[in-house]
Write a protein that binds this DNA or RNA. Structure first.
Lengths: 213, 213
DNA sequence: AGGCGAGTATACTGACCGGTATAGCTACTG
DNA sequence: CAGTAGCTATACCGGTCAGTATACTCGCCT
């Protein structure tokens, strides 16, 4: 027993929903699909409720408002991608620098499988107003990824992990968008090729020195 | 010569508005600012008309519908960015490979000056439904940029211009998005650094004898 | 036994938004 | 001089959408 039980002493009505009811799970799953596939602003709560086989009342009882549902959607997606990425990277025995490159393999699979519209956080950032709580989730996601890449870069012995991580993040975002726009075939693979060059360069004492400064 | 992107209107109706009336110019300028700054879906025609000092009737007389106004906005922005980029690249005497890198300097200035929300076409692509006519304008923009980069790459004597152009496009998009998300400071500069490495590598492979023509 | 959490069903409100209608004004031009 | 292009002003329509209200059912847990 977590002991948190609802001993009525609390005035505030908490709806944080750590544990979701079955209906809430369906709502969240449906919302995730529709928000991602057709855009957050483009889809209404009515459509979500209907598609989830739930009444609007239930939706509002569980999530409080569309804005909160949006945040829940982004958080769920955040957790999903983090898990997928880290699992992919750690899955096999790899050298640290192979791990850095493996993040692009993970991205390739992720985009290929069921994410034609690119990064949900970038999309949310574009769609939502600047002061929407979802913006924070989106930024946190990028901050986390940057940190993860930095850690891997440091582990690999990069000369300047922070800088390399920044470069790789740009490649991730660029590949994601280019895929979504269908501007370039196999964008993730191309980003990986670039990453390979940069990682190699960052690990080898400067030789090329393209330094136009 | 880049095969120009085309965008030739097929069997267009009237109201193509090559020459805009003074009121139409104000509407388009206002719409451009508001659509870009706050999002296409977030802003209504009423707000645009009011801000432009124009009645809704005039707006509809000139542009027909919000969708057509959106297309006009995207086309105008397309022309603006193409002009700015090409002018920047051709402005000074540069070697072909300096031109490739200069596109990132142009991007840096563009983002720094008045475009904190990144690429308007990426934003439009995210905001608009898949079958919206604006999607075509957005894709054409990317196709043009890819072609422009390919031509510069070929001019510079890159081993595989198409491939290099694709890489550089990914870098452009990645820098743009990273800037917009404020995930990385000086994203365009970092993208330029990466581009420098890739360009150097693309020109140097298999002892090219560096025929600096 | 009974209370409550979770849910269904349906109807409703209030705001906003894209687009239309009507009426009138001014300046140019054939 | 009359017609028309370009414009203002205002009111209105129909639809959509977030969110609320009411009333009722079912099953679990004290």
């Amino acid at each position: 027993m977590t002991g948190d039980g609802g001993t009525a002493g609390r005035g505030g009505k908490r709806r944080d929903a750590q544990r979701l009811t079955p209906a809430a799970v369906r709502v969240l799953e449906t919302a995730s699909e529709l928000f991602y596939a057709r855009g957050i602003r483009a889809i209404g709560v009515e459509a979500i409720a209907e598609e989830a086989g739930v009444t609007k009342k239930t939706l509002y009882d569980r999530f409080g408002s569309k804005d909160e549902l949006i945040v829940a959607y982004l958080r769920a997606r955040d957790a999903l991608w983090r898990g997928t990425l880290v699992r992919y990277v750690e899955e096999q025995v790899r050298t640290p620098q192979e791990k850095l490159l493996a993040t692009f393999d993970a991205l390739r699979d992720w985009l290929r499988e069921r994410n034609p519209r690119g990064c949900a956080f970038v999309n949310a950032h574009v769609e939502l107003p600047a002061d929407h709580p979802g913006q924070r989730v989106a930024r946190d996601q990028k901050t986390w990824l940057l940190g993860y890449l930095r850690d891997l870069a440091a582990e690999a012995g990069a000369a300047e992990p922070e800088q390399l991580a920044g470069q790789l993040l740009i490649l991730h975002e660029g590949a994601s968008i280019s895929h979504s726009l269908q501007a370039i075939p196999r964008a993730a693979e191309r980003a990986r090729e670039m990453a390979a060059v940069l990682v190699a360069q960052s690990l080898a004492p400067a030789r090329v020195t393209a330094g136009t400064r």
